[in-house]
Structures are given as C-alpha cells and as structure tokens.
C-alpha cells in the first residue's frame, strides 16, 4: 500500500538535500546564509544542526569563490551542492560557471567530470526590484556543457536533486521563488526522477502551452479558464531547459497544431525564442497559426508592486494568447 503526505516545495527541496547528505558522505552544502540562518528562503533550515558545519558551510560573501571551490571539490570526487542565493548573484560567478564548469570536461579530453550541483532561486514577483528579479535561466541554457533544470512541481523539487547529483556533468537547478510555499501530496516511497524529459501536465487537443518553472501554475490555470470556453489546452512543463526535450514538444504540437510559449524571461533572445524557432524548424507544416509567446515586458523589472505585476506574464496574458492562436489560422 502506498502512503502519502502533504509537502511544500520548500520542504521537498530540504528533504532532497537531507536525503542526499544522508545517502552519500561526499555530499556537502555551501553558500551564503545557508547554515545558521537556514537559507534565504528557509530551504536548509535545520540542516546545520543535523549535519554539522563541515557539511553545511556558511561561506564568505564571494560567489565566484564558492562556485569555484565547488568546482574544485567536484573535480576531486566530492558531490558539492552550491547554493547561490539567487540567480542575480550568479552574475558574480559567471566566469566560474561558463568558463570553468562548462568547459573543463571537454578541455581536459574527458579526464575530468564536474559532478557539481548549483541551486539558485530565480524569477520576479516579490517586489525585489530590477537587480534582484532576474530570470536568467535562459542564458545558462545557452551554454554547452551545462545541464539546466527547472523543477516546477513539488515532486520534481523532491526528486531532481539526487538525479542531478548522480549526473557527471554540472547541473544548474532553478527554483522559482513563487514556488516555495506551494504544496502537494507525495508518496512515501519515491521513484527516481529523470532530468531529461518534459512532462505533459495537462492533456489537451486544441493548443499546446509550453512553459516551465514559475509560470507552470499560471499556465494550468489559464488552461482551465479557456476550457470553460470550450478550448482544450495541453500544458507542457519543460523541466529540463538544456538539453531541451524536442520530442515531447513536437509530438504535442503535431497533434494540436497550435503553440503558445510562456516564459518569464525577456522575449528577445529568450528560451521562448529558441522553442519557437525549433517548432518552426521541426513542425512548421503542422501549424495552423503562428506561434505565440508570452514573456516579460522588455524593461528592467519594476519595483512598484502594480508595475511589476503588469510587467510579468499573468494568467490573463496567457488566456489572451491562447485565444489569439485558436482564433487564428485554419
């Protein structure tokens, strides 16, 4: 018999960390305010007391240093989980991530692997202003050598970490800040979770909504809203942003003949642009309407609450885009 329990996204990440720390003594955590404070988003609360300061390491305020040190530790066989408080601060570690973690396996002729996991919060919507509200996962998804995942559900938050740790390549996990308080029921006995495939979160026949991370819930709600008007939308959660799972996307678009891509990043040069391009490359003759994109307004993210809300993709924007593609074409 399967037993279940209600878990928040935050607790799920914490359980995943605890599980990894318990299963493999090579695993350790490193980052700012992760120990005594319990993490900026309270993800690692209690882990310092449980695992001690050698495995739950509060670091100096040096992003480049703790990512670089994580790479060094991974090179000699440790399994570091580096927390960069938010994607905004990862800009200070770009050289280590892009020039070192992403290239070393290749440039060492395969002598090295970098089994490093970097977790970071991403996204806007918490009134933190332009410099603390970035959605830059699309940038990282541009880099060969990195694996980029975005758990949008509690189950993925619980399961992706271990899979990422088992992966010999550096894996970046993007957790959207709006997700930490979401909750779901998980089975006590958890099956392994893959980090390769997109998932169909809602099956539908009229249009495919492709999204990930913080905009999945909004997309599902939008799908329910249009369902009331007789439009049956399929919602795909990308889960893995690099490499992208083209097969799941194309399979869906070939059935629905319409696609809307929802991405909290800025439209120009975005992940949404990449997906849209792939659909036109691979499924152009199956489309009944041009692909629509719902992205963030191309300005620095506003700080004032009402402006920020207006700038970000909202359920109403997704509904409007779905209606446009359904109305358009044949």
């Amino acid at each position: 018999m399967t037993t279940t329990r209600k878990t928040t996204y935050r607790e799920a990440v914490r359980e995943a960390l605890r599980d990894a720390l318990s299963r493999d003594e090579r695993v350790f955590l490193m980052g700012e305010d992760i120990g005594r404070y319990g993490g900026c988003y309270a993800v690692s609360l209690g882990l310092l007391e449980e695992f001690g300061p050698e495995r739950i390491r509060d670091t100096p305020l040096s992003e480049s240093a703790f990512v670089g040190a994580g790479i060094g530790a991974a090179l000699v066989g440790m399994r570091p989980v580096v927390e960069i408080m938010t994607v905004n601060f990862s800009l200070l570690a770009l050289d280590q991530i892009v020039n070192n973690a992403a290239t070393m396996p290749h440039m060492s002729g395969g002598q090295f692997s970098i089994p490093l996991v970097i977790r970071m919060t991403t996204g806007a919507g918490r009134q933190l202003a332009a410099q603390h509200s970035h959605s830059l996962e699309g940038w990282y998804a541009h880099i060969p050598g990195l694996r980029v995942v975005a758990p949008a559900t509690v189950a993925d938050a619980r399961g992706m970490l271990w899979t990422a740790l088992c992966d010999p390549d550096p894996v970046l996990i993007f957790e959207h800040a709006s997700l930490y308080n979401t909750a779901a029921t998980l089975a006590e006995q958890l099956a392994p979770v893959d980090i390769d495939h997109a998932a169909v979160r809602r099956a539908g026949t009229d249009v495919t909504v492709i999204t990930y991370g913080g905009t999945l819930a909004k997309s599902l709600e939008a799908a329910e809203e249009v369902a009331a008007a007789g439009v049956d939308a399929e919602v795909i959660d990308l889960r893995a942003l690099r490499p992208l799972d083209d097969a799941t996307i194309m399979d869906s678009v070939r059935r629905t003949h319409r696609a809307v891509v929802v991405d909290e990043g800025w439209r120009s040069g975005s992940l949404a642009a990449e997906i849209s391009a792939r659909i036109t490359e691979q499924a152009f003759y199956d489309l009944d309407a041009p692909v629509e994109r719902v992205c963030t307004v191309e300005t620095p993210i506003p700080y004032a609450q009402h402006l920020e809300r207006a700038a970000l993709p909202q359920q109403s924007d997704i509904v409007a885009a779905v209606r446009r593609v359904v109305a358009g074409g044949g």
Binding site: D24, R26, G110
Partner: peptide, 16 residues
C-alpha cells in the same frame, strides 16, 4: 580516454 567515473570515487570519511 579515461572514464569520468574514475574521478568520482567515494572519498574516505571525515574532513579536517
């Protein structure tokens, strides 16, 4: 070419 796994063997317990 050596296997990446060669570099990822478990380490002895205990840290300084």
């Amino acid at each position: 070419m050596s296997s990446p796994e060669r570099w990822t063997q478990p380490q002895p317990a205990g840290t300084p």
